[in-house]
Design a protein around this nucleic acid. Structure first.
Length: 287
DNA sequence: AGTGTCAAATCGCCCT
DNA sequence: AGGGCGATTTGACACT
């Protein structure tokens, strides 16, 4: 991965001599990834010029004391290359929160152990691709979120399937992603969750239908048997208090209990229709 | 009218 | 080839 103008555009953040900080507007078409500019919920503090040039990025939202430190060599112009642009798109752990800068002298650190940092660096180096690879030929590259990113997004999705702008910003920053990417991820997640649910409902309905068909078949058969029995023993049946009737519309048998409250035929009566038009919400459904 | 967000449909890269 | 999934497009809606 080389450092060039494009990278600078990607980062949108340039540290120059004398600690001039420039937050540039994206200089690429919209469809080209432009990583996080400094989020509005972050405050930027500059040290005095006499001190070792450094920038401290802190979360203004009081979110758990996260802070980011940028230290730059003052003797040369340094392009700050955030991982957000290229690296992240290719598995360089976003949660690493360690940016790779052009000279290697500028680092942004988060509260990670040195071991974690080493691991992160290793990961980044092993998965780094060339700019050409990152961009693809037609400019529409395919990024894959890291496992850590996905995990955090999933975790967040469990808590709330939609994000307010503030949550989006914070999450994007935590993940080193663009808010738009977080937004897209949540949109896709919602859509695919809904699709899965619909498919599951469909399967459930199919099973329901099969079960009810079977039961209907069984009940029809039972009716036939009872009818046959009734014809064979008309007098005995009339002596019983239980009276069988057949619903003319659905052919379902209903009965009246005898003196003891027993009705051997009532077991045949299942609800004839679903309430509130939603079979899935009917707990009495055989399936 | 401008802006932001959403769902739905679709595209297209990447992996198996 | 097909599925997973990130990204884009489009249209609807709410809010200011």
């Amino acid at each position: 991965m080389g450092i060039d103008g494009e990278d600078a555009c990607k980062s949108g953040l340039v540290l120059g001599l004398g600690l001039s900080l420039t937050v540039e507007s994206p200089c690429k078409p919209d469809h080209i990834q432009t990583p996080n500019k400094i989020p509005p919920f972050l405050k930027l503090e500059s040290t005095s010029f006499n001190d070792e040039p450094s920038l401290t990025l802190g979360l203004s939202g009081g979110g758990g004391g996260e802070s980011y430190q940028v230290t730059a060599a003052a003797t040369q112009k340094v392009d700050v290359k955030s991982t957000v642009g290229g690296d992240l798109y290719h598995q360089a752990s976003s949660l690493s929160a360690v940016s790779s800068f052009s000279t290697g002298k500028v680092k942004r650190e988060r509260e990670l152990s040195s071991e974690e940092l080493r691991e992160v660096e290793k990961k980044k180096n092993s998965s780094r691709l060339s700019d050409e690879d990152e961009e693809g030929v037609n400019g529409r590259k395919k990024l894959r979120l890291s496992k850590q990113q996905s995990a955090l997004l999933e975790e967040s999705f469990k808590q709330h399937s939609t994000l307010n702008p503030k949550q989006k910003q914070v999450l994007a920053w935590e993940l080193n992603m663009k808010p738009r990417q977080v937004e897209v991820w949540f949109q896709n997640r919602r859509a695919r969750t809904k699709l899965k649910q619909t498919e599951a409902d469909c399967e459930l309905l199919k099973k329901c239908c099969e079960t009810l068909t079977d039961e209907n078949r069984r009940l029809q058969k039972e009716i036939q048997e009872l009818k046959a029995l009734k014809l064979a023993q008309p007098f005995h049946m009339h002596m019983q208090t239980a009276t069988l009737t057949v619903c003319p519309s659905c052919q379902t048998t209903t009965g009246v209990a005898d003196a003891n409250g027993n009705n051997p035929y009532l077991m045949a009566s299942k609800p004839h229709h679903f309430y509130n038009n939603n079979p899935l919400s009917n707990p009495s459904a055989a399936c």
